[in-house]
């Protein structure tokens, strides 16, 4: 299983906010993460913690304004995406990075058929690599991509408009858009939430195959911790715009360290039928005035005086950002 873990993507100290009527939302607070070549990485965290914002930053598709990038860098093969010109970014998106966005209705254009949207992507990719593809070849690739997502009757779906498809079918169209051309990095934001588990499984196996055979890297965002366990080898846990824990997926899930991660794992409904937990008390903070020190401190049952004053760093050795694990301060 050891792969060449040369970094494909390195996010360093990224801070992003949104300017809104009421003021400035300080969302991402200096996050750092790394995706190795051929690595499957998970990103997990509460609704509104900034996962989609992270993905959009990597792709440089955050509209500015309202977004404001305060600092940090997003290195793709060592080059800073945030400082790339428009043409370089376009080249990156059409031939190296694909994304599956969370909201299929927003990602799909309602006035074009599925076939038109898919073939545009293939044509653009081909143009980027200097290939010339016949109409027939483009059609074949689109149908194949749809079939790979377990879509019934792909040829008929090519002629459909998004509105004529069920939620899960739209989601599969988005997945097909990402898989219709080869890429080095797949950013998958909740790719399988609307799908039943057999189709989900089929798609996860397909992604596995692309990693094993083509050396593709994946950043997977999902609320299903079971899917993270299944697909990824390493995972980042995010809370309110900060990375609070990082580690090998299986180890981290069996032995969570951060109080937030522990609460998260307790919230999962289990197949063993132990009933439903109450979730983590409290709510994600307001980004206009995020809590001082550790952003989790207002909800934490272990909170200590230092937690309100100092932001705990993510330690290299423990992979957790929490004062409980810093022998020197306790």
């Amino acid at each position: 299983m050891e792969r060449n873990m040369e970094s494909l993507v390195q996010v360093k100290g990224l801070s992003v906010g949104f300017r809104v009527f009421e003021g400035l939302l300080r969302v991402l607070d200096g996050i750092s993460l790394r995706i190795g070549q051929g690595e499957r990485v998970g990103l997990v965290g509460e609704t509104g913690c900034g996962k989609t914002t992270t993905v959009k930053s990597i792709l440089k598709v955050l509209p500015q304004p309202p977004a404001v990038i305060f600092g940090g860098e997003v290195l793709f093969r060592g080059k800073d995406v945030l400082r790339m010109g428009r043409r370089a970014v376009h080249q990156l998106r059409r031939s190296s990075v694909a994304a599956i966005f969370q909201d299929p209705l927003q990602a799909l254009n309602p006035v074009f058929t599925v076939g038109t949207q898919l073939s545009d992507i293939v044509r653009d990719w081909a143009a980027g690599t200097g290939k010339r593809l016949s109409k027939k070849e483009i059609f074949r690739r689109c149908v194949e991509a749809l079939a790979q997502t377990g879509m019934p009757d792909p040829e008929r779906i090519m002629t459909c408009y998004p509105i004529q498809l069920s939620g899960g079918m739209r989601q599969r169209v988005c997945i097909a858009e990402a898989l219709v051309r080869p890429v080095e990095l797949l950013l998958a934001d909740e790719p399988t939430t609307n799908l039943d588990v057999t189709i989900q499984d089929q798609i996860l196996r397909k992604l596995d195959e692309l990693v094993e055979e083509k050396g593709m890297s994946i950043l997977l965002i999902t609320h299903s911790l079971g899917v993270v366990m299944d697909l990824t080898e390493r995972v980042y846990i995010m809370y309110a715009g900060t990375i609070v824990e990082e580690g090998k997926t299986e180890e981290l899930f069996t032995n969570p360290k951060h109080p937030y991660t522990q609460g998260l794992l307790k919230s999962i409904p289990k197949l063993t039928g132990e009933g439903i937990s109450q979730g983590i008390p409290g709510r994600i903070p307001n980004y206009l005035h995020p809590p001082s020190g550790c952003r989790f401190h207002p909800r934490c049952e272990h909170v200590m005086p230092i937690c309100t004053q100092q932001k705990p760093p993510l330690t290299e050795s423990e992979g957790v950002a929490c004062h409980l694990y810093r022998g020197d301060v306790r």
Binding site: G150, M151, P152, D153, R156, D196, V197, T198, I199, Q200, D201, Q202, S224, L225, G226, V227, M229, D230, F253, L265, I268, K270, L271, T272
Partner: peptide, 30 residues
């Protein structure tokens, strides 16, 4: 379906039926 449920703990894994891989063509409602 049950064999494809993604789970996080070994206790849950033990409850799942033996893995049945989904294959074959998925028919269309038309």
């Amino acid at each position: 379906l049950l064999s494809s449920v993604p789970v996080v703990s070994p206790e849950e894994r033990a409850l799942k039926p033996e893995k049945v891989v989904s294959r074959g063509e998925i028919p269309s409602p038309v």
